[in-house]
Design a protein around this nucleic acid. Structure first.
Lengths: 359, 359
DNA sequence: GTGAAAGCGCTAACAG
DNA sequence: CTGTTAGCGCTTTCAC
C-alpha cells in the first residue's frame, strides 16, 4: 500500500502502464474519441485499486474554479438567519458562485474563516458591532448591520413600521407599554429601541423596559420580573402591552402572562418581530413585524455580485478567474456599495386588542 | 491596471523591487527576523496597490490544507437539521477539520457538491431513498437514513419509544387514534409508520391515517379532512388522539382542532416528534418524542473522524495530507462503519389526556 | 490514440 | 537579510 502519501495520477499511470497525461484525460471525461476503451478501463481499475482521487487544489490552480462567496450568519439554528442564508445562497448559485457558510458572531472571526480559502466576496449578516474591517481587499456587503467604511449594506427600514406598530397600540387605547429588548449588541436592536422610544414620546405614551437574551426562557423570566415590578392597581400590570424585539421573546411573554394568570390579548397585548413560524403557531397568533429574511439575503447577494461583475469589467477586481458562468440575471444599475433599506410590514393578528376596561 | 489577470506575488515583487520569495515570506507572516522592516513595508504597499491576495489554491497545493468534511442536510431552515449540522460542525472543528455545508435532498446532488472540492469525508443527513452511493472512494456516514453498502450510519432508536408513546395513549384510555404521516420518503418515516402500526396492533387499537407535506398548512388541511371523514357519533371525531410524525404537523392539528371547535387535550390528544422550539411554544405544550439532533450530528461526525484516523494509520486512507491537527479526543474503539442507534425519549406534556367521557 | 513537456502561483530549503 | 531553485499534482498544447 502507499506509504501515507495520497496516490497521484502518476501513481495511477505507473500501475496502469500508461502516461500520466492519459490518466488526466480519462478523469477529465475528455476520453471519448481520444482514449481507447481498453486503456480507459485499465486506468479506471488502477485508480480504484489505489483509491485515487484527483487533487482538487491542483486542478483549480491550473484551470481556475468557480468563484466563491462566503456567507456569514451569527446562528444557523435561528430560522430567521437560516432564511437569510437560503435566500443569499440561491442567488449566488444561480449566478454560478460556490457558497461557503461561516457561522460567526463577529467580523474578526469571519476574517479568520476567509483566510486560507479562495474567497472572492463576503456577505455578512447581523454581525456584532466592533471588529475591524477585513484586512484583505475582499468586497463585502453587510446585512442588517452598520456597514464598515466603503462597503455596501442592506437592512430593514424598521423605524416607520415600528412607528406604525406603536400607533396601532395607541389607537387600540394603550397608553402604558413595556418594551422587551434583546441584549444582543447589534445595530438593528439599537435602532429598534430608538424607534420605539421616539414613537412612544410622540404619542405621549409611558414606557418601561427590560433586556434579555434571545431565547424563550430568558424572556419569560424578564417578563415575569417586569410584571412583578410594575404591578399596577388592583393586581393588574402597570402596562397593557408588551412590544418585543423578536418573536422568540414574545413566546416567553405569553408564558409569563399565563404564569401571572393574565390572558393575551384581553389582559395584555403582545407583539413580536421577524414573523417566523412561531408567530403563527401560538394562540392567539402573534401581531408582529414581517421582516423578509430571504429577500434580505437575496438582495444583499445581488448587490455583492453586481459589484464583483463591475469590478471585473474595470479589470481591477480581485482575481477575475476563469469559468465565469454568468447567471441569467437581467442587468440592473446597482452599484453595490450604498446602503439600501428593505421595507418591513406590520401584520396585525390576534395578540393585540384594546386594553381591559379596568386597565 | 492589470489587464484582467489577478496579480500574483511575482507582480508584487516586481513592483516592490524585491524577489518573489521575499513577498512570500512577508505574506506568510514569517517575516520577523528574516525580512527587514523597510522591505516589508515596501512589499505591503505594492501588494495593496495591486490588490494582491495570495492564491489559496496554490498555497494548499504546496503545503496541504486542513482536511475538509462535507455535511449534507436536506433543509437548513428546519431547526432540527440545523441542530444536526451544528452538532456535527462543532465536533469537526474541534478535530481540526474544515466544514462545508451542502443543502441537498438526495445523494446524487451531494455527490455533485463533493466533486471539484477537496473533500475528505461526507456526513449526510436524512437523504431520500435511492441514489447510488458516491462513486468517489470517500468515506461517508449517513444519519437518520438507510446506510449505503459498507458505510456507517447513526439513527434514532425510534421504535421502542414510539411503542411507549402508543402505550401512554392506551393507558390514558384511547382506543381509536389517527396517525398523521409525513409524505417525505425517507427511512425514518417508514420506520415510524411501522412502529405505530405494530404498537396499535399489539394494543388492539383502531388506527386511521393520512399523509401530508412537512408544513403546518398541509397538516392543518389533512387533519381537517381526517376529522371530517371520520366523524363519529354525536359530532365527535372518530378518533380521540392524533399521533404526528413531526412537531410541525402537530401545530397544524392544533389549528384544525380549533377550526372544528375541539379542545386539546380535552376533546383530542395530540403528539409530535422532534421536540423543537415549537413544541413548548404552543398551548398546551406538546407531548412529543425528544430526538437529540445535535447529538446525532456529533455522534455521526465522531464516527466519521474515527474512521478517517484509522484509515490514515493503516496508510490507505484517501489523501492523508499534512497538518493533522489531531483533536483532543480520547481514543475510543469506534470503527465507524456499523449502524448505531441513539436513544430517543418520550416527553409527556400537556397535549395528552384521557379522552372525553362521551368519546 | 498516446506521450513529453511546460507551466498554474506558491513555499521551503539552501546559497549568497 | 534576500535571492535562486526545485517542485506540489494537474491540465493542455504539440509531437509522434
Amino acid at each position: 500500500m502507499s506509504n501515507g502519501r495520497a496516490p497521484t495520477s502518476h501513481d495511477v499511470a505507473r500501475l496502469a502502464g500508461v502516461s500520466q497525461s492519459t490518466v488526466s484525460l480519462v478523469f477529465r471525461g475528455a476520453s471519448s474519441g481520444r482514449v481507447g476503451e481498453r486503456t480507459r478501463r485499465t486506468v479506471l481499475d488502477a485508480a480504484r485499486e489505489l483509491g485515487f482521487r484527483p487533487n482538487a487544489d491542483a486542478r483549480r490552480l491550473r484551470v481556475g474554479g468557480p468563484r466563491m462567496v462566503l456567507i456569514a450568519v451569527p446562528d444557523i439554528v435561528n430560522p430567521f438567519f437560516a432564511r437569510v442564508f437560503t435566500g443569499a445562497r440561491a442567488v449566488a448559485r444561480e449566478a454560478g458562485f460556490q457558497v461557503v457558510l461561516s457561522v460567526q458572531r463577529d467580523l474578526d472571526s469571519v476574517a479568520a474563516d476567509v483566510a486560507g480559502q479562495q474567497i472572492d466576496a463576503v456577505l455578512a449578516c447581523s454581525l456584532e458591532d466592533g471588529g475591524r474591517p477585513l484586512e484583505d481587499p475582499v468586497p463585502a456587503v453587510v446585512l442588517d448591520a452598520e456597514p464598515p467604511q466603503g462597503q455596501g449594506s442592506v437592512r430593514f427600514d424598521i423605524a416607520p413600521v415600528l412607528t406604525e406598530l406603536v400607533g396601532h397600540l395607541h389607537r387600540l387605547g394603550h397608553r402604558r407599554i413595556a418594551h422587551l429588548r434583546s441584549d444582543v449588541r447589534t445595530a438593528t436592536f439599537r435602532e429598534r429601541t430608538e424607534a420605539v422610544d421616539a414613537a412612544c414620546e410622540r404619542h405621549g405614551m409611558t414606557r418601561v423596559h427590560a433586556s434579555c437574551a434571545l431565547d424563550t426562557g430568558s424572556a419569560r423570566e424578564a417578563a415575569s420580573a417586569l410584571l412583578a415590578e410594575h404591578a399596577g392597581p388592583g393586581g393588574r400590570p402597570g402596562f397593557t402591552a408588551v412590544v418585543c424585539d423578536d418573536d422568540v421573546l414574545s413566546v416567553g411573554v405569553y408564558k409569563a402572562a399565563a404564569d401571572a394568570g393574565l390572558a393575551v390579548p384581553a389582559d395584555l397585548s403582545v407583539t413580536g418581530m421577524d414573523d417566523v413560524d412561531l408567530a403563527t403557531a401560538v394562540t392567539p397568533e402573534l401581531t408582529t413585524l414581517h421582516l423578509p429574511g430571504e429577500e434580505l439575503g437575496a438582495t444583499g447577494m445581488r448587490r455583492l455580485i453586481a459589484r464583483l461583475e463591475r469590478g471585473a469589467e474595470r479589470g481591477d477586481g480581485p482575481r477575475a478567474r476563469a469559468g465565469q458562468a454568468a447567471g441569467a440575471r437581467s442587468g440592473s444599475a446597482e452599484t453595490g456599495t450604498e446602503c439600501v433599506r428593505l421595507p418591513a410590514r406590520l401584520l396585525v393578528r390576534g395578540s393585540t386588542a384594546p386594553p381591559a376596561a379596568g386597565g
